[in-house]
Design a protein around this nucleic acid. Structure first.
Lengths: 173, 173
DNA sequence: GAGTACATGTAAATTGTTACATGATTTA
DNA sequence: TAAATCATGTAACAATTTACATGTACTC
């Protein structure tokens, strides 16, 4: 059910075509609710069918821009405010972290180092993005808060990687 | 593909029946790689079929305990050490956080407060669990590191919730 | 004029969910 | 002995992925 609200939510932030949604998800939301273009086109059609979205513009190459309707916004509101969140997840990265301590010390440390490097780079990019955003958008903007979210989670993962590396390095093997 | 490695990984930590895996995932890993019992039974059968796991014990009520084979451990090793992680995710909680700033100020704050309470409680439980574990297991134990992981991520989410609440509260509405 | 990015989709396969079936053993 | 828990599964459905199809507009 969440794909529906991901799409409806993005449309309620600003009208978009399926193609634009796909690019947006690919570039800025792959760790929130990943979806493929064909899934998005199908969901847009269903949302329009149910009256939660509508086509507000048609462009070249069959481009169709959808926007959330009033009914759609109300539906989104209900979901955000009244529905009980489903806290279950599937995260390959978390699964890897979970299993990694089972590796032999040197293997575990090698994998952790790779991960630490990746996370440090991601954190750097996120901080840079926040600096650039600070001049353009207000601190309570959706995009700014989403980026702060990413910053804090990346920081936490990085901290865990370093903690795990210290603990595993101290292992007598 | 990750369900396969989730199961293989759990079996490589300790042999278990499908029922035990289901309970383990339900209680301690629902935010890592959630799976249902019927999915687990099917995956265990496939793992056994491929030679990555084997039945090592049969008990009452048709209970079958599986363990990872040497081949299975090698497969798991390859995945952890050599395969490129897939960093895409689907997290309803993250999606809600992302969309929440689009709500009207008072609605957003109400939802954030509910979320903050939930996270604070979860953090408390996690810290308590860590204290109890400190006496029983060594600091580099899989379960301890997994719990530290949860602690750090929950802390980050809590921090974001408070940050978001401050920023949104400062909005002139 | 060729290549890239735009733009939407269909079909088949895999993965995950929901609802149900079935029965054995343990505990109150 | 009734209820709870243990224990494994099947069938139908929904969501997601993979591979492919098709053509248009822009850019070099």
């Amino acid at each position: 059910m969440s794909l529906r609200f991901a799409v409806l939510g993005l449309l309620s932030i600003r009208p978009a075509s399926g193609y634009e949604l796909a690019r947006h998800i690919e570039t800025t939301l792959p760790q929130v609710w990943y979806a493929r273009n064909n899934q998005l086109y199908a969901e847009l059609a269903k949302l329009a069918d149910d009256g939660f979205a509508e086509i507000v513009e048609e462009g070249p190459r069959g481009r169709r821009v959808y926007a959330a309707t009033e009914v759609g916004r109300a539906e989104l509101w209900r979901w955000l405010v009244e529905a009980e969140p489903d806290r279950k997840q599937r995260s390959e990265v978390a699964l890897r972290d979970f299993l990694l301590p089972e590796l032999r010390k040197d293997d575990a440390l090698r994998v952790l180092e790779r991960e630490t490097r990746h996370l440090a780079a991601e954190l750097g990019e996120t901080e840079e993005l926040l600096r650039r955003m600070a001049e353009l958008a207000s601190p309570d903007d959706v995009r700014v808060l989403a980026t702060e979210h990413r910053r804090l989670l990346t920081e936490a993962r990085l901290e865990w990687s370093r903690l795990a590396a210290r603990r595993i390095a101290a292992r007598q093997d």
